[in-house]
Write a protein that binds this DNA or RNA. Structure first.
Length: 469
RNA sequence: GCUCCCUUCGUCUAGCGGUAAGGACGCGGCCCUCUCAAGGCUGAAACACGGGUUCGAUUCCCGUAGGGAGCACCA
């Protein structure tokens, strides 16, 4: 069975670049009815943390990237790595190295000074006697000559000379394996058939291939994904521009939009832009992924998010919108049904956060008039019309958009003015600003009592203007 | 420095030897319109450069340039 894995190290949040790697691994496995494994690479004990693990799991769950096996933790498999490392020593394929860090630093400095490729020179290879008082590391005996090649699913044939490789450390002095060793062992033990990862590992693959061979394991297939670059063309990383996936949730993005956006970075299917997860599973294959890096475009993500908001069932948007109301400190009991907000605001919201923020005037008793909008639309000339509209609103028994619209329309007709002449002042009066859904709908959502009291305030604002003129 | 990888509109991409180089985001215009959007139509906008191969190169090969990655007791 085809099996892929996502193997993050829990040394920080789950960022958007990692998510794409996870997505592609998930999609490739799902497409081929395979299995998707989640493995936590926590061998760097100093940098790993429980919070990071939780953030990764939460992010995966939010996105709906379900794993079939795991999460497995490397920190729970140390015995296995140790056994295999000792086995390699017994076969002469690895050896203990007693060099101190300062010796190694010195060696590296000398090599760089001589213009050589820095690397371990193998000075402990033939050492028989242990060095008392020193905990040795275990190094893998890398072939000195020849080359290795990988037929990468996205990069094609890549060849690396063994001369470029040195005897890398596979077990640290404290008995903890290094990444290069643990990855190889785990991928084999867990039956991973397709290793899909970032292309920062492309060069490392040569090392892994040697270890795989020494251990007598089967080679998996490799697919190295191009990096995602920031707007400045520099690789996205936790330190540089990449956001925690959970920040996207906080900013009001939908998981489906984030996934769809990421899928289209380095992959496409004809001219199609919008893909459901089901469609992605049906269409995706890693071998179709591009080899070149892509820049992250926040504008396109925003556009996609709006497309998803527009086409989602309002019920499905509700929990996210309510979260936004809460985080903005808005009280949903103090205003209209949020479902109605979704229906009337979705065309003008790119994120759920935008939507919640722009509906603020629906959930508060008092609003502020925006100075510029008020100055422009609440002028003495409109006072008469606003007053008439206000008086008619008081007498309305049914406060519904259609009825409201007829009232406003008839005021406009009786006074032979354009609908807009009265619509815009009404909008500013009841929302405080110049932008909102159609005025009839807006008035309905604001509510009769609030609309009237806000009109009263607007009228007194105009009177003040007349008085001070 | 050494090694590996990458290179089509500003951005994401289609293209797989012969195309008016297509789509999407963004940008401009028009339409719709009570505002803002959404929607429709439309415009500007690209094959990094130099050599080959070929009747013919965006497409294949080799350089150059630019960008990215790796060379840790990090992953």
């Amino acid at each position: 069975m085809l099996k892929t894995r996502f193997a993050p190290s829990p040394s920080g949040f789950l960022h958007i670049g990692s998510v794409r790697t996870a997505l592609f691994s998930f999609l490739h496995a799902s497409h081929h009815q395979g299995s998707f494994v989640l493995r936590i690479e926590d061998t760097d004990e100093a940098r790993s943390s429980k919070q990071s693990i939780d953030a990764i799991l939460e992010g995966m769950q939010w996105l709906g990237l379900k794993w079939d096996e795991g999460p497995f933790y490397q920190s729970q498999r140390y015995d296995r790595y140790r056994d295999l490392a000792n086995h390699l020593i017994s076969e002469g394929k690895a050896y203990r190295c007693y060099c101190s860090k300062s010796d190694l630093t010195k060696l590296r400095e000398e090599q760089i000074a001589q213009g050589k490729n820095p690397g371990y020179d193998g000075r402990c290879r033939d050492r028989i006697e242990p060095e008392p008082g020193i905990d040795p590391v275990i190094r893998f005996r890398t072939p000195d000559v020849g080359d290795v090649s990988v037929n990468d699913l996205v990069r094609g044939l890549v060849k690396i000379d063994n001369e470029m490789l040195d005897d890398l450390i596979i077990m640290r002095a404290d008995g903890v394996p290094t990444f290069h060793f643990a990855v190889v062992v785990d991928d084999s033990d867990m039956g991973i058939t397709h290793v899909i990862r970032g292309d920062d590992h492309l060069s490392n693959t040569a090392k892994h291939l040697h270890i795989i061979e020494a251990l007598g394991f089967d080679r998996p297939q490799f697919a190295h994904l191009p990096m995602i670059l920031g707007e400045d063309g520099v690789r996205l990383s936790k330190r540089h521009g990449a956001l925690n996936v959970l920040d996207y949730r906080q900013q009001g993005f939908l998981p489906a939009a984030v996934l769809n956006y990421l899928a289209r970075l380095g992959w496409s299917s004809g001219d199609q832009e919008i893909f459901s997860l089901e469609q992605l599973i049906k269409l995706f294959d890693v071998s179709d992924v591009n080899a070149s890096a892509a820049k992250f475009d926040p504008d396109k993500l925003l556009w996609l998010n709006q497309q998803y908001i527009l086409s989602s069932d309002p019920e499905n948007l509700l929990p996210g919108l309510i979260d936004q109301f809460e985080s903005l400190g808005m009280d949903i009991k103090n205003g209209p049904n949020p479902i109605d907000v979704i229906i009337s605001f979705r065309e003008r919201a790119q994120t759920l956060r935008d939507m919640a923020a722009s509906a603020a005037y629906l959930y508060t008793d008092e609003i502020e008039l925006e100075a510029a909008a008020a100055k422009k639309h609440l002028r003495p000339a409109v006072k008469e019309f606003l007053q008439i509209a206000r008086d008619r609103f008081v007498n309305l028994e049914l406060w519904e958009a259609e009825v409201i619209r007829k009232e406003v329309q008839s005021v406009a007709e009786q006074h032979e003015i354009n609908f807009g002449k009265i619509g815009q002042p009404l909008r500013v009066a009841v929302t405080g600003g110049g932008v909102s859904p159609p005025i009839d709908l807006t008035l309905e959502l604001v509510g009769q009592a609030r609309s009237i009291s806000r009109l009263d305030k607007a009228l007194s604002y105009i009177e003040q203007r007349i008085a001070s003129a």
